[in-house]
Design a protein around this nucleic acid. Structure first.
Lengths: 219, 219
DNA sequence: CTATGATATGACCGGTCAGTCATATGACCA
DNA sequence: TGGTCATATGACTGACCGGTCATATCATAG
């Protein structure tokens, strides 16, 4: 956790520092991010960073935590329609994609997190949140007969997470971009029908998932 | 490409250098791998590395290239049964998993590649190889009526690659290990029924894929 | 005005890094 | 023996890193 000094700061300054940190950690892997650069870009002295945070890791972990909250807020603002499991899935994936396009730095932050020195401890914390949520949804879908009861839950969880995680790459390919380019702010201005293509791709994918998981008599 | 000097070296020395490089790049992300460490562990002077390679990237790219060839050789040695597309897929995935268990450093090398500074150019090169191969298989399966003709090919390619890529994580979970542990040489000695569990998990996953992709009248 | 405690600063420290280069070694031939 | 060319070496360079600390600044209270 940041030191009290950080929270005593004017909100604008706090946000400026975190914005720069997000940009840096969303642009480079952890080890390549320089505390000095963050300080310089934020217009403060390097020593000040160490008035606010214990060390580089403290700043990074706080940033990750904050990113999680922002994304959760975003998803909460989107009313996801879970009346039907698969259309709920479509809306969830669309909202997730929307978030990543609106906040590309957050998307890349999460990506680089996967190879940060704190990968494992971060993932464990993350999974405790998301897996609990997912298990709940899957259990409900099962009880409604929307997912065959003979598919192991862990397989379903893997199925979801693997496809969702790689979805950005797929979308990038469809739009004729690289992953780098897709998450470059402003890369989509000028591209036509982006939202249309996203929706189409998402529906196609979920349909593939639905056929795989749903009871055969449903399709 | 390495300089001619490298290829003039005795095979044993060449292999020693590449073995150390593989271990280092399979243990740390690109930016954390030190040329000096590789030289020291290989028993040569740091300057020699620069007699053999243009720079760090040259060494790294050559290593990746070599890894690809080794894996391709491995898969070629396994006779994959493509009489039926889905059982062929099972055998392909099993062979792939087998390779990663036998050569855990290669598996990790591929993993870290995903966040190397050359991610995109590497992936593009990789896809040109694997996509061509995959497209062929998919086209054949389609003509046999094993895959519905209305599913876009790029979606199928993504479906495969995403599930295959994350499969290691899933397997690790099934075996009660972390990803780290799964790819630690010797971590599996003492574990029971590893091959059985691998086969079961693979079949379960491919069945999920088959249901998603196959024409409905087939199941 | 002064005293006090919180905050800001950037020079500095010890360390690591990729890459260079003058020099040394050794093999081969005349 | 001496000359030539490929190869080996590690000290060195310049840059960058995370983190520290003595000092300066500032706001507030007495």
């Amino acid at each position: 956790m940041p030191k009290q000094t950080f929270f005593n700061l004017p909100a604008a300054k706090r946000e400026q520092i975190m914005a720069v940190a997000l940009d840096e950690f969303g642009r480079n892997p952890y080890t390549r991010v320089s505390v000095g650069t963050i300080a310089r870009r934020a217009g403060i002295a390097k020593g000040s960073i160490y008035q606010y945070f214990e060390d580089k890791k403290d700043l990074y972990m706080f940033l990750l935590h904050q990113a999680g909250e922002v994304k959760l807020e975003f998803l909460k603002r989107h009313e996801l329609n879970w009346e039907d499991f698969y259309s709920g899935l479509v809306s969830l994936m669309l909202a997730g994609t929307e978030f990543e396009l609106e906040h590309p730095r957050y998307a890349r932050l999460g990506y680089f997190m996967l190879t940060s020195p704190f990968r494992d401890e971060t993932l464990i914390e993350l999974q405790q949140v998301s897996k609990g949520h997912l298990a709940e949804l899957v259990a409900m879908a099962r009880s409604r007969g929307e997912i065959r009861a003979d598919i192991p839950i862990d397989l379903i969880a893997f199925f979801f997470s693997a496809l969702m995680m790689g979805f950005g790459d797929f979308i990038a390919g469809r739009l004729g971009l690289t992953w780098e380019e897709l998450y470059t702010p402003g890369a989509l201005t000028g591209l036509r029908d982006v939202r249309e293509q996203l929706k189409t791709a998402t529906i196609e994918l979920v349909e593939l998932m639905r056929r795989g998981m749903a009871p055969t008599n449903r399709s």
